[in-house]
Design a protein around this nucleic acid. Structure first.
Length: 479
RNA sequence: GGUCUCGUAGUAUAACGGUUAGUACAUCGGGUUUUCAUCCCGACAACGCGAGUUCGACUCUCGCCGAGAUCACCA
């Protein structure tokens, strides 16, 4: 089966969590069937147009690895891919409709239309413009909007997600095709473009479900083949029951990139929000998603956005990359996420820090907070030592003498590596007659003054002999 | 108001006529010689309500309730 899908955003801002799915699913479906995904920019509303939004959209898709096969930048056989540059195509189709008597120029001033609408709402009857259709209509010319001439009838269709649908004639109306500024409306433009570009699957949010009968009427009037229709349920905001939008503070997708969430995790989470393949698998690579994706298994109800789960995916992916591809690959991804003090250290050292801290990361930017003490001696905070839940029952003198024993034993250590450090640490347990929680907390805090850190022997190994002893000594003096 | 859609634990979901209603996140406990995490083990927790069909219904039908979408010269 030939599959051509499209992602057709309007350049009015960034792509956020609530609307990326309508790019992800078309991509997965296209790739699964060796088809194409087209990126089309729907910029017919000049008032809402935002400078730079197109770049933002492209940037987001590129980050997620949703590479389009036709569209801006790369072009394609159906160029241009900006609706604002395809005006003449819409006008050609419009003329076809006028010739067949299915469209008319409507000179009615908008104040007049507002009156009709008000009248209906007062009488509590549905407002349908076709009931107010002007009797004599002028020739269509620039400056006059063009309306579709609806023929009230029933429509039945199949939605790949929602199932069999039908609607009565009461939803069919004389929708605007071309606005008075000469640009087409979405309602008209997307139909023309989808047909021109050979789109086989129209995937979009459920909000278009109610207008579908009007689209079906247009396909019919234009004698175009109906594409398969796929309504994607909304992603709901964390609270309330509304769809997630910018007003709810929906973050842009790329903001998560800047926060150190891996693209793989983002794609994985979003694809699985409202879709599953029926198995209990949670972690999917892009290729696995492509392989297992199916329209029938897209959920028909809305799905709530849960950032905590996204972050869980992020942590899982960091570990997955480390385990399967090694530190080097993970390390390359960490550029820009280290604390500033790390700038003076070489890659090898940072790689070693990464390899002992990676399983604690939820996002790459956690590196900033979690690794600072590997690059600069932390400020000594005696209270942190004294208040520690394991250490507070020990006297200061006790802490000091314990620390001195630790220092003298570690100084004797010849091979400063993880194994020998662990041996020494074990011996110290007996020598000092302290519980592991006491002894290890003391050393750990003295060396890091951080709320948590990797295993003690590993931390000391990476820190190195000189640095470790220097830190322990200065703490011993400070007590 | 008209039309349409949706309704399994807090969240995302599985099961689709017969199961102790499964899994994951979150939460709470426990284990892996310190911490935080990872990993492992365990606990808590759900079929919106009411009829009907059936030997039997989360699964089918109807009604109700609840939630949402749409009714723009926005997409």
């Amino acid at each position: 089966m030939k599959v051509v899908t499209r992602f057709a955003p309007s350049p009015t801002g960034y792509i956020h969590i609530g609307n990326v799915r309508s790019a992800i699913y078309p991509y997965l479906l296209a790739k699964q069937n060796a088809g194409k995904m087209i990126l089309r920019i729907e910029d017919t509303d000049r008032e809402r147009y935002v400078e730079g939004a197109t770049e933002l959209i492209e940037d987001t898709l590129e980050w997620l690895g949703l590479n389009w096969d036709e569209g801006p930048i790369i072009g394609g056989p159906h160029a241009p891919y900006f609706q604002s540059e395809r005006k003449s195509i819409y006008h050609d189709y419009a003329r076809r409709l006028i010739e067949s008597g299915r469209a008319y120029a409507d000179p009615t001033p908008s104040e007049e239309i507002a009156k009709y609408r008000e009248k209906c709402s007062k009488e509590k009857i549905p407002f349908l413009y076709r009931n107010f259709r002007p009797e004599n209509t002028p020739e269509w010319e620039p400056g006059i909007p063009l309306r579709f001439k609806a023929e009230p009838k029933e429509y039945a269709w199949h939605d790949e997600v929602m199932g069999d649908m039908h609607a009565g004639p009461e939803v069919l109306d004389d929708i605007i095709l071309i606005k008075k500024d000469g640009y087409p409306t979405y309602n008209f433009a997307h139909i023309v473009d989808d047909a021109e570009m050979g789109v086989t699957h129209v995937m979009r949010g459920v909000e278009y479900l109610s207008s579908t009968p009007n689209y079906l009427a247009l396909y019919e009037a234009l004698n175009l083949e109906r594409p398969k229709l796929v309504s994607l349920p909304h992603i709901l905001a964390p609270t309330g029951n509304k769809k997630l939008g910018k007003r709810d503070g929906a973050k842009s997708v790329t903001e998560y990139r800047d926060d150190g969430v891996l693209a793989e995790a983002m794609l994985n989470y979003l694809a699985c929000l409202g879709w599953n393949d029926g198995t209990e698998q949670e972690i999917y690579t892009k290729d696995q998603l492509i392989k297992n994706f199916s329209l029938e298994r897209i959920q028909s109800s809305g799905a709530r956005y849960d950032e905590t789960k996204l972050l869980w995916y992020s942590g899982q992916w960091i570990r997955k990359i480390f385990d399967e591809q090694g530190v080097d690959v993970l390390y390359e991804r960490t550029a820009g996420f280290w604390p500033e003090v790390a700038d003076n250290f070489n890659n090898d050292y940072k790689r070693r820090v990464l390899s002992i801290i990676y399983d604690r990361l939820k996002t790459l930017s956690d590196l900033r907070e979690m690794t600072a003490y590997f690059f600069a001696a932390p400020a000594i905070d005696i209270d942190m030592l004294l208040q520690n839940k394991f250490l507070k029952k020990l006297s200061e003198a006790e802490l000091e003498s314990t620390l001195k024993t630790v220092i003298s034993e570690l100084t004797k250590l010849e091979d400063w590596n993880a194994d020998s450090l662990q041996n020494t640490l074990n011996n110290l347990l007996e020598l000092t007659n302290k519980k592991p929680a006491e002894l290890f907390s003391l050393i750990r805090i003295a060396v890091s003054f951080a709320p948590f850190s990797p295993a003690l022997n590993l931390t000391l190994e990476v820190l190195g002999r000189d640095e470790s002893l220097a830190r322990l000594n200065s703490v011993a003096r400070a007590i």
